[in-house]
């Protein structure tokens, strides 16, 4: 038999531990909604559960009156909050230097302008052009560009693994690699002007995608052979859906390195490639 006093002390200790944990609510956004069937006494519970795994859509959520339950509503708002924060948030100032990127900015001056004036997000500021001329690498074989685009979170979540894997691959193939660039307030086509200033033989831009509620961290890569301002959209190659739930960033980096190798070998990108 255990000493009852010890048992009491142990129980008290456990209770305190529990209370400590209870003070922080569980992370709403971590719940797998495909596992969460909220319909009470459904006609066929097990088939309902099966069905929920066949779609990422928010089903099996039930209702109070005609309105969603509180936790469903809050989860939706949490996912939207993350998406909006990702659009409106900024890539930290120190990000570029921490990853060895040369920072420049387009003609856009603030986030609101970025969202309403896509044309300005394609043009480099005067200062940016000077920075590139002074600090960029002219006439390299592969120029890597990172741009915030519509998701600051996509940059933070993917670049730390993708960029070194990409650079490692390019180095392994023996290419002359330009100093990588970070573009603030960039749209895809800002690569065209960079191409005209630095004349790289090929260029890849890694840019945040418009967030959905499912993920706010998705990144796209657009690739071009000898980018220039009159190039057509169809002359760019693209790989999208790079994030932890899609194409993992590390594998994407290695894959992009081999795609750049193919683009250089065939001297073309996009539909011509």
């Amino acid at each position: 038999m255990q000493n009852p006093y010890e048992t009491v002390a142990l129980l008290k200790e456990r209770k305190e531990e529990r209370e400590k944990i209870d003070q922080v609510l569980p992370d709403l956004a971590k719940i797998n909604i495909q596992e969460q069937l909220l319909v009470p006494q459904p006609a066929d519970e097990s088939l309902y559960r099966e069905m929920m795994h066949l779609t990422p859509a928010r089903i099996g959520v039930w209702r109070t009156g005609t309105r969603p339950l509180t936790r469903t509503m809050l989860r939706f708002r949490a996912d939207h909050a993350l998406a909006q924060d990702s659009v409106l948030g900024m890539v930290p100032e120190e990000f570029a230097s921490a990853h060895g990127l040369l920072p420049i900015q387009t003609q856009v001056e603030n986030k609101e302008q970025y969202l309403t004036r896509p044309d300005l997000g394609r043009k480099l500021s005067l200062e940016a052009r000077e920075t590139l001329t002074k600090g960029g690498t002219a006439a390299c074989q592969v120029q890597v560009v990172v741009a915030d685009g519509l998701s600051s979170k996509a940059i933070g979540a993917n670049i730390p693994d993708l960029l070194p894997a990409l650079m490692q691959g390019l180095a392994h193939y023996g290419f002359i690699i330009g100093r990588p660039i970070f573009v603030k307030y960039g749209r895809v086509a800002c690569m065209d002007e960079i191409g005209e200033i630095l004349h790289p033989e090929s260029l890849v831009i890694l840019i945040g995608e418009r967030p959905g509620l499912g993920t706010a961290e998705s990144l796209s890569a657009y690739m071009a052979y000898k980018p220039h301002r009159s190039m057509l959209e169809s002359e760019r190659s693209v790989i999208s859906n790079i994030h932890r739930g899609g194409i993992p960033p590390l594998e994407a980096g290695a894959h992009l390195a081999s795609l750049m190798k193919q683009i250089l070998a065939s001297k073309a990108s996009g539909v011509r490639y």
Binding site: A165, Q168, H172, I247, P248, L250, E251, A254, H255
Partner: peptide, 14 residues
């Protein structure tokens, strides 16, 4: 099992 074959292979060669 995971989708890392290319990154791992590239790293081994490197």
């Amino acid at each position: 099992k995971d989708d890392i074959g290319k990154a791992l292979g590239q790293s081994i060669r490197f």
